[in-house]
Design a protein around this nucleic acid. Structure first.
Length: 568
RNA sequence: CGGGAUGUAGCGCAGCUUGGUAGCGCACUUGCUUCGGGAGCAAGGGGUCGCAGGUUCAAAUCCUGUCAUCCCGACCA
Protein backbone atom coordinates (compact mmCIF):
# COMPACT_ATOMS: atom_id res chain seq x y z
CA UNK A 1 0.00 0.00 0.00
CA UNK A 2 1.10 3.53 -0.71
CA UNK A 3 1.14 5.69 2.39
CA UNK A 4 -0.32 8.64 0.50
CA UNK A 5 -3.56 6.63 0.35
CA UNK A 6 -3.43 5.30 3.90
CA UNK A 7 -5.16 6.48 7.05
CA UNK A 8 -2.25 7.17 9.40
CA UNK A 9 -3.38 10.10 11.54
CA UNK A 10 -0.23 10.59 13.59
CA UNK A 11 -0.16 13.30 16.22
CA UNK A 12 2.81 15.48 17.03
CA UNK A 13 1.52 16.32 20.46
CA UNK A 14 0.52 13.92 23.18
CA UNK A 15 -3.22 13.89 23.90
CA UNK A 16 -3.78 15.31 27.37
CA UNK A 17 -5.66 12.35 28.82
CA UNK A 18 -3.01 9.73 28.11
CA UNK A 19 -0.83 8.81 31.03
CA UNK A 20 1.17 5.70 30.31
CA UNK A 21 3.53 5.16 27.39
CA UNK A 22 1.46 2.61 25.47
CA UNK A 23 -1.63 4.79 25.59
CA UNK A 24 0.24 7.89 24.44
CA UNK A 25 2.06 6.09 21.66
CA UNK A 26 -0.95 4.19 20.33
CA UNK A 27 -2.86 7.46 20.12
CA UNK A 28 0.04 9.40 18.64
CA UNK A 29 0.80 6.71 16.09
CA UNK A 30 -2.78 6.83 14.86
CA UNK A 31 -3.51 3.23 15.84
CA UNK A 32 -6.55 3.84 18.05
CA UNK A 33 -9.01 6.62 18.85
CA UNK A 34 -11.21 6.95 21.88
CA UNK A 35 -14.97 6.93 21.55
CA UNK A 36 -15.86 7.29 25.22
CA UNK A 37 -14.03 6.35 28.40
CA UNK A 38 -12.81 2.79 28.07
CA UNK A 39 -13.98 2.26 24.50
CA UNK A 40 -11.66 2.60 21.55
CA UNK A 41 -11.79 2.22 17.80
CA UNK A 42 -8.95 0.48 16.04
CA UNK A 43 -7.75 2.40 13.00
CA UNK A 44 -6.18 0.50 10.08
CA UNK A 45 -2.66 0.20 11.48
CA UNK A 46 -3.88 -0.72 14.95
CA UNK A 47 -6.30 -3.25 13.54
CA UNK A 48 -3.53 -4.96 11.58
CA UNK A 49 -1.61 -5.40 14.84
CA UNK A 50 -4.66 -6.81 16.56
CA UNK A 51 -5.12 -9.28 13.70
CA UNK A 52 -1.46 -10.29 13.83
CA UNK A 53 -1.76 -11.03 17.52
CA UNK A 54 -4.96 -13.00 16.94
CA UNK A 55 -3.32 -14.97 14.16
CA UNK A 56 -0.46 -16.05 16.41
CA UNK A 57 -2.99 -17.11 19.01
CA UNK A 58 -4.98 -19.10 16.42
CA UNK A 59 -1.89 -20.91 15.20
CA UNK A 60 -0.78 -21.91 18.67
CA UNK A 61 -4.26 -22.87 19.81
CA UNK A 62 -4.52 -25.10 16.75
CA UNK A 63 -1.20 -26.67 17.63
CA UNK A 64 -2.73 -27.58 21.01
CA UNK A 65 -5.80 -29.00 19.24
CA UNK A 66 -8.17 -26.35 20.51
CA UNK A 67 -11.10 -25.59 18.21
CA UNK A 68 -12.30 -22.12 17.44
CA UNK A 69 -15.92 -21.08 17.39
CA UNK A 70 -17.65 -17.79 17.98
CA UNK A 71 -20.69 -16.78 19.98
CA UNK A 72 -22.81 -13.71 20.27
CA UNK A 73 -21.63 -11.12 22.73
CA UNK A 74 -25.28 -10.45 23.50
CA UNK A 75 -26.46 -13.00 26.04
CA UNK A 76 -29.77 -13.74 27.72
CA UNK A 77 -29.56 -13.50 31.51
CA UNK A 78 -30.45 -17.12 32.31
CA UNK A 79 -27.00 -18.65 31.92
CA UNK A 80 -25.46 -16.19 34.33
CA UNK A 81 -28.38 -16.45 36.74
CA UNK A 82 -28.09 -20.20 37.21
CA UNK A 83 -24.41 -19.91 38.16
CA UNK A 84 -25.15 -16.95 40.43
CA UNK A 85 -22.85 -14.64 38.53
CA UNK A 86 -25.65 -12.36 37.33
CA UNK A 87 -25.47 -10.98 40.87
CA UNK A 88 -21.78 -11.56 41.50
CA UNK A 89 -20.82 -9.41 38.54
CA UNK A 90 -23.49 -6.91 39.53
CA UNK A 91 -23.04 -3.46 38.01
CA UNK A 92 -19.85 -4.67 36.36
CA UNK A 93 -22.01 -6.28 33.72
CA UNK A 94 -23.60 -4.25 30.93
CA UNK A 95 -27.23 -5.23 31.34
CA UNK A 96 -30.11 -4.45 29.02
CA UNK A 97 -33.64 -5.53 28.24
CA UNK A 98 -35.23 -6.44 24.95
CA UNK A 99 -38.60 -5.00 23.85
CA UNK A 100 -40.43 -7.67 25.82
CA UNK A 101 -38.63 -6.74 29.01
CA UNK A 102 -36.45 -9.83 29.01
CA UNK A 103 -33.02 -9.43 30.62
CA UNK A 104 -29.91 -9.55 28.51
CA UNK A 105 -26.29 -8.64 29.03
CA UNK A 106 -23.16 -8.11 27.01
CA UNK A 107 -20.97 -11.06 27.92
CA UNK A 108 -18.14 -10.31 30.35
CA UNK A 109 -16.83 -13.90 30.16
CA UNK A 110 -18.40 -17.12 29.01
CA UNK A 111 -17.82 -20.04 31.37
CA UNK A 112 -21.48 -20.85 31.81
CA UNK A 113 -22.30 -20.31 28.15
CA UNK A 114 -19.63 -22.74 27.01
CA UNK A 115 -20.85 -25.19 29.62
CA UNK A 116 -24.30 -24.99 28.04
CA UNK A 117 -22.90 -25.60 24.59
CA UNK A 118 -20.89 -28.55 25.83
CA UNK A 119 -23.98 -29.89 27.58
CA UNK A 120 -26.04 -29.89 24.43
CA UNK A 121 -23.32 -31.11 22.06
CA UNK A 122 -20.91 -33.39 23.91
CA UNK A 123 -22.50 -36.61 25.11
CA UNK A 124 -19.88 -39.29 25.52
CA UNK A 125 -16.62 -39.76 27.35
CA UNK A 126 -15.17 -40.74 23.96
CA UNK A 127 -15.03 -37.08 22.88
CA UNK A 128 -13.26 -35.93 26.02
CA UNK A 129 -11.10 -34.08 26.77
CA UNK A 130 -11.92 -31.26 24.38
CA UNK A 131 -10.90 -27.61 24.21
CA UNK A 132 -13.08 -24.95 22.60
CA UNK A 133 -12.27 -21.28 22.27
CA UNK A 134 -13.30 -18.02 20.73
CA UNK A 135 -11.72 -14.66 20.03
CA UNK A 136 -14.49 -12.25 20.77
CA UNK A 137 -15.36 -8.86 22.12
CA UNK A 138 -16.12 -8.76 25.82
CA UNK A 139 -17.84 -6.10 27.86
CA UNK A 140 -17.28 -5.08 31.45
CA UNK A 141 -18.55 -1.87 32.89
CA UNK A 142 -15.37 -1.22 34.85
CA UNK A 143 -15.67 1.16 37.75
CA UNK A 144 -12.62 2.89 36.57
CA UNK A 145 -11.45 2.24 33.04
CA UNK A 146 -7.93 3.53 32.59
CA UNK A 147 -4.66 3.55 30.74
CA UNK A 148 -6.15 3.20 27.27
CA UNK A 149 -6.29 -0.41 26.17
CA UNK A 150 -4.96 -1.62 29.52
CA UNK A 151 -8.28 -1.54 31.31
CA UNK A 152 -11.14 -0.86 28.97
CA UNK A 153 -14.83 -1.55 29.02
CA UNK A 154 -14.88 -3.17 25.62
CA UNK A 155 -12.00 -5.47 24.83
CA UNK A 156 -11.10 -8.46 22.75
CA UNK A 157 -10.45 -11.61 24.68
CA UNK A 158 -9.45 -15.07 23.61
CA UNK A 159 -11.35 -17.32 25.96
CA UNK A 160 -10.85 -21.06 25.89
CA UNK A 161 -12.61 -23.72 27.91
CA UNK A 162 -11.59 -27.30 28.41
CA UNK A 163 -13.97 -30.14 29.15
CA UNK A 164 -12.70 -33.36 30.60
CA UNK A 165 -13.83 -36.55 32.28
CA UNK A 166 -11.85 -36.06 35.46
CA UNK A 167 -9.05 -34.22 37.18
CA UNK A 168 -6.52 -36.03 35.06
CA UNK A 169 -8.11 -34.79 31.84
CA UNK A 170 -8.13 -31.29 33.31
CA UNK A 171 -4.44 -31.54 34.09
CA UNK A 172 -3.71 -32.58 30.51
CA UNK A 173 -5.71 -29.69 29.02
CA UNK A 174 -4.31 -27.21 31.53
CA UNK A 175 -0.75 -28.18 30.69
CA UNK A 176 -1.49 -28.01 26.99
CA UNK A 177 -2.89 -24.48 27.32
CA UNK A 178 -0.02 -23.45 29.57
CA UNK A 179 2.44 -24.51 26.89
CA UNK A 180 0.42 -22.81 24.15
CA UNK A 181 0.45 -19.56 26.12
CA UNK A 182 4.22 -19.72 26.50
CA UNK A 183 4.60 -20.20 22.74
CA UNK A 184 2.20 -17.32 22.05
CA UNK A 185 3.92 -14.82 24.33
CA UNK A 186 7.37 -15.97 23.21
CA UNK A 187 6.44 -15.34 19.59
CA UNK A 188 5.22 -11.88 20.50
CA UNK A 189 8.60 -11.03 21.97
CA UNK A 190 7.34 -10.45 25.50
CA UNK A 191 9.29 -10.62 28.73
CA UNK A 192 6.77 -12.32 30.99
CA UNK A 193 6.44 -14.38 34.11
CA UNK A 194 3.99 -17.09 35.13
CA UNK A 195 2.70 -16.57 38.65
CA UNK A 196 0.36 -18.37 41.03
CA UNK A 197 -2.87 -16.46 41.32
CA UNK A 198 -6.01 -16.14 43.35
CA UNK A 199 -9.07 -17.63 41.66
CA UNK A 200 -11.30 -14.77 42.79
CA UNK A 201 -14.87 -14.74 41.56
CA UNK A 202 -14.12 -17.48 39.06
CA UNK A 203 -13.79 -20.15 41.69
CA UNK A 204 -11.92 -23.36 41.15
CA UNK A 205 -8.94 -25.15 42.56
CA UNK A 206 -5.99 -23.30 41.11
CA UNK A 207 -4.87 -20.74 38.64
CA UNK A 208 -1.87 -19.02 37.16
CA UNK A 209 -1.42 -15.66 35.52
CA UNK A 210 0.89 -14.68 32.70
CA UNK A 211 2.39 -11.37 33.68
CA UNK A 212 4.24 -9.02 31.39
CA UNK A 213 6.79 -7.19 33.46
CA UNK A 214 6.13 -3.46 33.36
CA UNK A 215 6.08 -0.54 35.75
CA UNK A 216 2.73 0.35 34.20
CA UNK A 217 1.19 -2.93 35.32
CA UNK A 218 -1.71 -2.92 37.73
CA UNK A 219 -0.74 -6.13 39.47
CA UNK A 220 2.05 -6.68 41.93
CA UNK A 221 4.03 -9.87 41.63
CA UNK A 222 6.26 -11.43 44.24
CA UNK A 223 9.01 -13.75 43.12
CA UNK A 224 12.13 -15.45 44.34
CA UNK A 225 15.22 -15.51 42.17
CA UNK A 226 16.67 -18.38 44.13
CA UNK A 227 13.99 -21.02 43.63
CA UNK A 228 11.80 -19.52 40.92
CA UNK A 229 8.72 -19.09 43.09
CA UNK A 230 6.38 -16.45 41.65
CA UNK A 231 2.92 -15.40 42.74
CA UNK A 232 0.53 -12.53 42.51
CA UNK A 233 0.91 -10.52 45.71
CA UNK A 234 -2.78 -11.17 46.38
CA UNK A 235 -1.90 -14.80 46.63
CA UNK A 236 1.73 -14.96 47.83
CA UNK A 237 1.87 -16.66 51.19
CA UNK A 238 3.60 -14.89 54.06
CA UNK A 239 5.64 -16.95 56.48
CA UNK A 240 6.84 -15.92 59.87
CA UNK A 241 10.20 -14.29 59.94
CA UNK A 242 11.74 -16.43 62.58
CA UNK A 243 9.87 -19.46 63.82
CA UNK A 244 12.11 -19.95 66.86
CA UNK A 245 11.39 -16.56 68.22
CA UNK A 246 7.71 -17.06 68.58
CA UNK A 247 7.55 -19.05 71.76
CA UNK A 248 5.84 -16.52 73.90
CA UNK A 249 6.73 -16.39 77.50
CA UNK A 250 4.10 -14.80 79.62
CA UNK A 251 6.61 -13.79 82.20
CA UNK A 252 7.81 -11.11 79.80
CA UNK A 253 4.37 -9.50 79.65
CA UNK A 254 4.34 -5.98 80.97
CA UNK A 255 1.25 -4.46 82.51
CA UNK A 256 -1.12 -2.87 80.01
CA UNK A 257 -1.38 0.92 80.20
CA UNK A 258 -3.65 3.52 78.69
CA UNK A 259 -1.76 6.50 77.29
CA UNK A 260 -3.15 9.81 76.10
CA UNK A 261 -2.35 10.32 72.42
CA UNK A 262 -4.39 13.34 71.41
CA UNK A 263 -5.01 13.55 67.67
CA UNK A 264 -2.58 10.75 66.84
CA UNK A 265 -4.73 8.96 64.28
CA UNK A 266 -2.25 7.41 61.91
CA UNK A 267 0.34 4.75 62.57
CA UNK A 268 3.03 7.26 61.83
CA UNK A 269 1.70 9.89 64.21
CA UNK A 270 1.08 7.44 67.00
CA UNK A 271 4.44 5.71 66.80
CA UNK A 272 6.28 9.00 66.65
CA UNK A 273 4.38 10.31 69.64
CA UNK A 274 4.93 7.13 71.64
CA UNK A 275 8.51 6.89 70.48
CA UNK A 276 8.14 3.36 69.21
CA UNK A 277 8.42 1.53 65.90
CA UNK A 278 5.59 0.74 63.49
CA UNK A 279 6.58 -2.87 64.11
CA UNK A 280 5.50 -2.50 67.73
CA UNK A 281 2.03 -1.34 66.84
CA UNK A 282 -0.95 -3.33 65.66
CA UNK A 283 -3.47 -1.78 63.26
CA UNK A 284 -7.07 -2.70 63.86
CA UNK A 285 -8.96 -2.37 60.59
CA UNK A 286 -12.72 -2.60 60.61
CA UNK A 287 -14.34 -4.20 57.60
CA UNK A 288 -17.85 -4.68 56.43
CA UNK A 289 -18.04 -8.24 55.15
CA UNK A 290 -21.44 -8.63 53.49
CA UNK A 291 -23.57 -7.54 56.47
CA UNK A 292 -21.18 -8.33 59.26
CA UNK A 293 -18.55 -6.08 60.79
CA UNK A 294 -15.21 -7.71 61.54
CA UNK A 295 -11.82 -6.46 62.65
CA UNK A 296 -8.59 -7.43 60.94
CA UNK A 297 -5.35 -6.91 62.79
CA UNK A 298 -1.98 -6.51 61.14
CA UNK A 299 1.35 -5.09 62.26
CA UNK A 300 1.68 -1.33 61.90
CA UNK A 301 4.14 -1.47 59.02
CA UNK A 302 2.20 -4.12 57.04
CA UNK A 303 -0.52 -3.98 54.42
CA UNK A 304 -3.67 -5.95 54.91
CA UNK A 305 -4.36 -8.30 52.00
CA UNK A 306 -8.06 -7.99 51.27
CA UNK A 307 -8.07 -10.99 48.96
CA UNK A 308 -6.80 -13.23 51.72
CA UNK A 309 -9.27 -11.78 54.18
CA UNK A 310 -12.13 -12.20 51.75
CA UNK A 311 -11.16 -15.80 51.05
CA UNK A 312 -11.06 -16.57 54.75
CA UNK A 313 -14.40 -14.92 55.44
CA UNK A 314 -16.01 -16.41 52.34
CA UNK A 315 -17.94 -13.21 51.72
CA UNK A 316 -18.83 -11.62 48.40
CA UNK A 317 -18.58 -8.00 49.45
CA UNK A 318 -15.77 -6.68 51.53
CA UNK A 319 -15.10 -3.04 52.17
CA UNK A 320 -13.61 -0.93 54.89
CA UNK A 321 -16.19 0.26 57.35
CA UNK A 322 -17.10 3.93 57.08
CA UNK A 323 -16.28 6.42 59.82
CA UNK A 324 -19.80 6.27 61.20
CA UNK A 325 -19.74 2.50 61.61
CA UNK A 326 -16.27 2.66 63.14
CA UNK A 327 -17.31 5.09 65.85
CA UNK A 328 -20.49 3.13 66.48
CA UNK A 329 -18.56 -0.10 67.00
CA UNK A 330 -15.51 1.24 68.80
CA UNK A 331 -16.97 4.26 70.50
CA UNK A 332 -14.08 6.30 69.16
CA UNK A 333 -13.05 8.25 66.09
CA UNK A 334 -11.29 6.50 63.23
CA UNK A 335 -7.66 5.95 64.21
CA UNK A 336 -8.25 4.74 67.74
CA UNK A 337 -9.70 1.28 67.16
CA UNK A 338 -8.19 -1.60 69.10
CA UNK A 339 -9.00 -5.21 69.94
CA UNK A 340 -9.32 -4.85 73.69
CA UNK A 341 -12.96 -4.97 74.69
CA UNK A 342 -14.16 -5.06 71.11
CA UNK A 343 -17.16 -7.34 70.74
CA UNK A 344 -16.77 -8.44 67.11
CA UNK A 345 -14.76 -11.13 65.32
CA UNK A 346 -11.05 -10.37 65.55
CA UNK A 347 -8.98 -11.85 62.77
CA UNK A 348 -5.29 -11.69 63.54
CA UNK A 349 -2.48 -11.88 61.10
CA UNK A 350 -0.04 -14.68 61.83
CA UNK A 351 2.62 -12.18 62.65
CA UNK A 352 0.46 -10.32 65.15
CA UNK A 353 -0.29 -13.55 66.94
CA UNK A 354 3.34 -13.73 67.98
CA UNK A 355 3.85 -10.17 69.10
CA UNK A 356 4.31 -9.12 72.70
CA UNK A 357 3.70 -5.86 74.54
CA UNK A 358 2.37 -4.04 71.52
CA UNK A 359 0.48 -0.82 70.96
CA UNK A 360 -3.16 -0.64 69.88
CA UNK A 361 -5.94 1.91 69.83
CA UNK A 362 -7.90 2.17 73.07
CA UNK A 363 -11.37 2.45 71.48
CA UNK A 364 -11.48 5.90 73.00
CA UNK A 365 -10.69 9.01 71.01
CA UNK A 366 -7.24 10.31 71.91
CA UNK A 367 -5.99 7.20 73.69
CA UNK A 368 -3.84 4.18 72.88
CA UNK A 369 -3.02 1.12 74.93
CA UNK A 370 0.55 -0.04 75.32
CA UNK A 371 1.94 -3.40 76.41
CA UNK A 372 -1.07 -5.22 75.09
CA UNK A 373 -0.86 -9.01 74.86
CA UNK A 374 -3.00 -11.62 73.21
CA UNK A 375 -5.04 -13.97 75.40
CA UNK A 376 -4.31 -11.90 78.50
CA UNK A 377 -5.98 -8.75 77.13
CA UNK A 378 -8.17 -10.05 74.33
CA UNK A 379 -8.94 -13.23 72.40
CA UNK A 380 -8.56 -13.77 68.69
CA UNK A 381 -11.42 -15.33 66.73
CA UNK A 382 -8.97 -16.53 64.12
CA UNK A 383 -5.30 -16.41 63.31
CA UNK A 384 -4.56 -16.37 59.59
CA UNK A 385 -2.11 -15.09 57.04
CA UNK A 386 -3.90 -11.89 56.02
CA UNK A 387 -1.12 -9.51 55.14
CA UNK A 388 0.42 -8.63 51.78
CA UNK A 389 3.89 -9.85 51.05
CA UNK A 390 6.62 -7.23 50.75
CA UNK A 391 10.08 -6.90 49.21
CA UNK A 392 12.62 -8.74 51.33
CA UNK A 393 10.10 -11.09 52.94
CA UNK A 394 10.81 -14.79 53.21
CA UNK A 395 10.10 -16.92 50.15
CA UNK A 396 7.36 -19.39 51.14
CA UNK A 397 9.06 -22.07 49.07
CA UNK A 398 12.76 -21.82 49.90
CA UNK A 399 12.97 -19.14 52.61
CA UNK A 400 15.07 -17.02 50.28
CA UNK A 401 14.42 -13.33 49.80
CA UNK A 402 11.31 -12.16 47.93
CA UNK A 403 11.43 -9.50 45.24
CA UNK A 404 8.44 -7.45 44.22
CA UNK A 405 7.65 -6.06 40.76
CA UNK A 406 4.73 -4.84 38.76
CA UNK A 407 3.14 -6.76 35.94
CA UNK A 408 0.40 -6.58 33.31
CA UNK A 409 -1.89 -9.59 33.39
CA UNK A 410 -2.15 -10.77 29.77
CA UNK A 411 -3.22 -14.33 30.39
CA UNK A 412 -4.99 -16.22 33.14
CA UNK A 413 -5.58 -19.95 33.30
CA UNK A 414 -7.92 -21.66 35.76
CA UNK A 415 -8.69 -25.14 36.91
CA UNK A 416 -12.38 -24.64 37.40
CA UNK A 417 -13.55 -28.11 38.33
CA UNK A 418 -17.28 -28.72 38.14
CA UNK A 419 -18.67 -25.41 39.41
CA UNK A 420 -20.03 -24.31 36.05
CA UNK A 421 -20.80 -27.73 34.63
CA UNK A 422 -22.95 -28.49 37.66
CA UNK A 423 -24.77 -25.18 37.38
CA UNK A 424 -25.45 -25.83 33.70
CA UNK A 425 -26.11 -29.53 34.12
CA UNK A 426 -23.25 -30.23 31.78
CA UNK A 427 -22.69 -33.98 32.00
CA UNK A 428 -21.42 -36.83 29.84
CA UNK A 429 -21.96 -40.57 29.85
CA UNK A 430 -18.94 -42.46 31.14
CA UNK A 431 -17.67 -45.97 30.24
CA UNK A 432 -20.18 -47.48 32.60
CA UNK A 433 -23.12 -45.60 31.19
CA UNK A 434 -23.28 -43.28 34.16
CA UNK A 435 -23.77 -39.53 34.02
CA UNK A 436 -20.82 -37.47 35.26
CA UNK A 437 -20.22 -33.77 35.39
CA UNK A 438 -17.51 -32.55 33.08
CA UNK A 439 -14.43 -31.11 34.72
CA UNK A 440 -13.72 -27.73 33.26
CA UNK A 441 -10.82 -25.37 32.83
CA UNK A 442 -10.87 -21.83 31.52
CA UNK A 443 -8.07 -19.98 29.79
CA UNK A 444 -8.12 -16.31 28.88
CA UNK A 445 -5.85 -13.99 26.96
CA UNK A 446 -6.48 -10.25 26.89
CA UNK A 447 -5.91 -9.63 23.22
CA UNK A 448 -6.38 -5.85 23.16
CA UNK A 449 -4.47 -5.57 26.39
CA UNK A 450 -1.63 -7.43 24.70
CA UNK A 451 -1.36 -4.62 22.16
CA UNK A 452 -0.71 -2.22 25.03
CA UNK A 453 1.60 -4.62 26.85
CA UNK A 454 3.75 -5.12 23.76
CA UNK A 455 4.08 -1.37 23.34
CA UNK A 456 4.99 -0.95 27.00
CA UNK A 457 7.91 -3.28 26.51
CA UNK A 458 8.88 -2.13 23.05
CA UNK A 459 9.32 1.59 22.66
CA UNK A 460 11.98 4.26 22.68
CA UNK A 461 12.13 8.05 22.53
CA UNK A 462 11.12 7.97 18.85
CA UNK A 463 8.05 5.81 19.24
CA UNK A 464 6.95 2.21 19.07
CA UNK A 465 9.36 -0.58 18.13
CA UNK A 466 7.10 -3.45 17.05
CA UNK A 467 8.55 -6.94 17.14
CA UNK A 468 8.55 -8.29 13.58
CA UNK A 469 5.90 -10.87 14.44
CA UNK A 470 3.19 -8.31 15.18
CA UNK A 471 4.32 -5.23 13.22
CA UNK A 472 1.58 -3.76 11.05
CA UNK A 473 3.97 -3.89 8.09
CA UNK A 474 7.46 -5.30 7.85
CA UNK A 475 9.13 -2.79 5.58
CA UNK A 476 8.70 0.80 4.51
CA UNK A 477 10.35 1.83 1.25
CA UNK A 478 11.08 5.56 1.27
CA UNK A 479 12.10 7.51 -1.82
CA UNK A 480 13.72 10.69 -0.48
CA UNK A 481 12.55 12.86 -3.29
CA UNK A 482 9.27 11.68 -4.69
CA UNK A 483 9.58 14.11 -7.58
CA UNK A 484 12.72 12.49 -8.91
CA UNK A 485 12.10 9.77 -11.47
CA UNK A 486 15.04 7.48 -10.73
CA UNK A 487 14.41 7.49 -6.98
CA UNK A 488 10.71 6.82 -7.40
CA UNK A 489 11.30 4.15 -10.02
CA UNK A 490 13.80 2.26 -7.90
CA UNK A 491 11.64 2.57 -4.79
CA UNK A 492 8.63 1.34 -6.72
CA UNK A 493 10.61 -1.61 -8.10
CA UNK A 494 11.91 -2.64 -4.66
CA UNK A 495 8.42 -2.29 -3.25
CA UNK A 496 6.91 -4.46 -5.99
CA UNK A 497 9.54 -7.14 -5.61
CA UNK A 498 9.00 -7.26 -1.86
CA UNK A 499 5.28 -7.63 -2.35
CA UNK A 500 5.81 -10.38 -4.90
CA UNK A 501 8.02 -12.18 -2.39
CA UNK A 502 5.23 -12.05 0.17
CA UNK A 503 6.74 -9.32 2.32
CA UNK A 504 4.31 -6.86 3.87
CA UNK A 505 5.65 -3.59 2.52
CA UNK A 506 4.47 -0.03 2.23
CA UNK A 507 5.73 2.63 -0.14
CA UNK A 508 6.05 6.01 1.52
CA UNK A 509 5.21 8.25 -1.39
CA UNK A 510 3.76 11.11 0.65
CA UNK A 511 4.65 14.57 -0.57
CA UNK A 512 6.32 15.40 2.70
CA UNK A 513 9.86 16.28 3.54
CA UNK A 514 11.99 13.23 4.41
CA UNK A 515 12.28 14.24 8.06
CA UNK A 516 8.53 14.20 8.51
CA UNK A 517 8.22 10.77 6.94
CA UNK A 518 11.13 9.35 8.94
CA UNK A 519 9.59 10.61 12.17
CA UNK A 520 6.24 9.09 11.30
CA UNK A 521 7.69 5.72 10.35
CA UNK A 522 9.71 5.62 13.58
CA UNK A 523 6.63 6.56 15.58
CA UNK A 524 4.46 3.84 14.09
CA UNK A 525 7.32 1.39 14.51
CA UNK A 526 7.87 -0.23 11.11
CA UNK A 527 10.80 -2.63 11.78
CA UNK A 528 12.74 -2.12 8.53
CA UNK A 529 13.16 0.97 6.39
CA UNK A 530 14.69 1.02 2.93
CA UNK A 531 15.63 4.52 1.90
CA UNK A 532 16.22 5.38 -1.74
CA UNK A 533 18.21 8.59 -2.08
CA UNK A 534 20.93 10.27 -4.08
CA UNK A 535 23.09 7.20 -4.43
CA UNK A 536 20.38 5.54 -6.46
CA UNK A 537 22.43 6.31 -9.55
CA UNK A 538 24.98 3.78 -8.27
CA UNK A 539 22.16 1.43 -7.26
CA UNK A 540 22.89 2.04 -3.58
CA UNK A 541 20.06 2.21 -1.05
CA UNK A 542 19.95 2.32 2.73
CA UNK A 543 18.71 -0.49 4.94
CA UNK A 544 17.80 0.65 8.41
CA UNK A 545 16.72 -1.37 11.42
CA UNK A 546 14.20 0.44 13.62
CA UNK A 547 15.22 -1.39 16.77
CA UNK A 548 18.99 -0.97 16.64
CA UNK A 549 19.07 2.13 14.47
CA UNK A 550 21.80 0.50 12.43
CA UNK A 551 22.10 1.59 8.81
CA UNK A 552 23.87 -0.27 6.01
CA UNK A 553 24.26 0.68 2.38
CA UNK A 554 23.40 -2.07 -0.05
CA UNK A 555 22.52 -2.56 -3.67
CA UNK A 556 18.79 -2.74 -4.26
CA UNK A 557 19.04 -6.48 -4.91
CA UNK A 558 21.02 -7.06 -1.73
CA UNK A 559 18.51 -5.03 0.26
CA UNK A 560 15.63 -7.10 -1.04
CA UNK A 561 17.48 -10.30 -0.23
CA UNK A 562 18.27 -9.10 3.26
CA UNK A 563 14.63 -8.33 3.90
CA UNK A 564 13.55 -11.74 2.67
CA UNK A 565 16.10 -13.38 4.92
CA UNK A 566 14.84 -11.43 7.92
CA UNK A 567 11.19 -12.07 7.36
CA UNK A 568 10.51 -15.21 5.41
C1' C B 1 -18.12 4.73 44.96
C1' G B 2 -14.75 8.54 48.03
C1' G B 3 -10.84 12.42 47.10
C1' G B 4 -8.53 15.82 43.40
C1' A B 5 -8.19 18.25 38.66
C1' U B 6 -9.90 19.73 33.89
C1' G B 7 -13.63 20.89 29.88
C1' U B 8 -12.19 27.10 24.69
C1' A B 9 -10.92 24.64 16.47
C1' G B 10 -8.69 17.83 14.81
C1' C B 11 -4.30 18.02 18.79
C1' G B 12 -1.64 21.02 22.67
C1' C B 13 -2.80 25.48 25.18
C1' A B 14 -3.70 31.10 26.55
C1' G B 15 -7.80 34.34 27.75
C1' C B 16 -11.51 33.89 33.16
C1' U B 17 -8.87 37.16 38.93
C1' U B 18 -10.68 42.88 37.08
C1' G B 19 -17.68 40.78 32.19
C1' G B 20 -17.48 44.40 26.43
C1' U B 21 -18.84 39.18 21.83
C1' A B 22 -12.30 34.66 21.04
C1' G B 23 -6.65 34.06 20.40
C1' C B 24 -1.61 31.33 19.92
C1' G B 25 1.32 26.92 18.29
C1' C B 26 0.74 22.39 15.54
C1' A B 27 -2.39 20.11 11.88
C1' C B 28 -5.52 21.42 7.31
C1' U B 29 -6.19 24.38 2.12
C1' U B 30 -3.67 27.49 -1.87
C1' G B 31 0.80 29.73 -3.99
C1' C B 32 6.13 30.47 -4.15
C1' U B 33 10.96 29.02 -2.35
C1' U B 34 12.78 24.57 -0.15
C1' C B 35 13.74 19.13 0.16
C1' G B 36 18.53 13.22 4.17
C1' G B 37 15.43 13.64 10.70
C1' G B 38 8.81 17.08 12.47
C1' A B 39 11.25 23.84 6.62
C1' G B 40 10.38 29.40 5.42
C1' C B 41 7.26 33.28 3.57
C1' A B 42 2.40 34.82 2.10
C1' A B 43 -2.80 34.16 1.85
C1' G B 44 -6.97 31.22 3.71
C1' G B 45 -10.81 27.71 6.06
C1' G B 46 -12.46 25.86 10.69
C1' G B 47 -15.04 27.28 17.38
C1' U B 48 -23.45 27.76 19.62
C1' C B 49 -16.03 28.62 24.67
C1' G B 50 -19.19 20.73 27.53
C1' C B 51 -24.61 21.43 28.48
C1' A B 52 -28.84 23.91 31.07
C1' G B 53 -30.60 27.69 33.96
C1' G B 54 -29.60 32.43 36.48
C1' U B 55 -27.34 37.59 37.33
C1' U B 56 -26.38 41.72 33.77
C1' C B 57 -27.52 46.63 28.85
C1' A B 58 -23.72 42.80 27.91
C1' A B 59 -21.20 36.20 30.08
C1' A B 60 -15.77 31.97 27.70
C1' U B 61 -15.29 35.20 32.09
C1' C B 62 -19.70 35.84 37.82
C1' C B 63 -23.57 32.29 40.40
C1' U B 64 -26.31 27.45 40.53
C1' G B 65 -27.08 22.81 38.62
C1' U B 66 -25.71 19.01 35.38
C1' C B 67 -22.77 16.01 32.10
C1' A B 68 -18.10 14.37 30.45
C1' U B 69 -12.84 13.31 30.79
C1' C B 70 -8.35 12.28 33.49
C1' C B 71 -5.49 11.20 38.09
C1' C B 72 -5.18 8.83 43.29
C1' G B 73 -7.76 5.35 46.20
C1' A B 74 -11.50 1.53 46.56
C1' C B 75 -12.93 -2.39 43.25
C1' C B 76 -11.94 -6.15 39.41
C1' A B 77 -10.83 -12.99 35.33
Amino acid sequence: MRTSQMLIPTLREVPADAEIESHKLLLRAGMITKLVSGIYSFLPLGYRILMKIEQIIREEMARSEAQELVMSALRPAEGYQSSGRWDVFGPEMFKLKDRHGRDFCLGPTHEEIFAEVAKSTIKSYKSLPMILYQIQTKYRDERRPRFGLMRSREFVMKDAYSFGKDANDLDISYKSMYDAYCRIFDRQGLDYMVVDADTGAMGGSGSQEFMVKSYAGEDVIAYCEKCGYAANSEKAECLLDNEDDIISSESLYKPMEKISTPGMKTVEEATQFLNCDAKDLVKTLLYKADDKIVAALVRGDRELNETKLRNYLGCTELQMADAETVSEITGADVGFAGPVGLDIDLILDLEVAHMKNFVVGANETGYHLINVNINRDFKASAIRDIRTIAEGDICPQCRGSIKVDRGIEVGHIFKLGTKYSEAAGCAYIDENGKEQYMVMGSYGIGVTRLVAAIVEQNNDENGIVWPLSVAPYHVAVVPINTAEGPQMDTAQRIYNELLDAGVEAILDDRKERPGVRFKDLDLIGIPIRITVGRKVSDDIVEYKCRKTGKVVELSSTQAIEKVKKQIL
